[in-house]
């Protein structure tokens, strides 16, 4: 399996570390209610179809990457930098967290 790092290009899967659903990169804001934190930590969608995962290019350029994947066809689609997707907090040098994370994360039974 190969993943495309938006910076480094196509690389072997062994260079990356998996961090679960990409919602993990969107922490609730500091004022978020406990329910939002509960959902952020514990509740995840289980879609049949497109889902987004969080990967870390650990054995490479250290970028955090959102990978779109289809759970039905197993197709791995687009990748983009977490820093450039907006909505979540940016990570890494040179990109301060300007945008506030949404207080209501995606997913969960609400």
């Amino acid at each position: 399996m190969r993943l495309t790092c938006p910076l480094c290009g196509s690389r072997d899967r062994r260079e990356f570390t998996y961090y679960g659903d990409a919602v993990y990169a969107s922490r609730p804001g500091p004022d978020a209610p406990p329910e939002a934190w509960d959902a952020y930590l514990h509740l995840r969608d289980n879609p049949a179809g497109e889902t987004r995962d969080l990967w870390y290019h650990e054995m490479g350029c250290s970028a955090w990457i959102e990978v779109t994947r289809d759970t039905v066809t197993h197709a791995v689609g687009a990748t983009r930098l977490i820093a450039e997707r907006g909505g979540g907090r940016a990570s890494g040098a040179g990109s301060p967290a300007k945008k506030k994370a949404p207080s209501k994360p995606r997913g969960g039974r609400a």
Partner: peptide, 8 residues
């Protein structure tokens, strides 16, 4: 100078 990562 070598590129070593995002912003570095």
């Amino acid at each position: 100078i070598l590129w070593t990562g995002r912003g570095q």
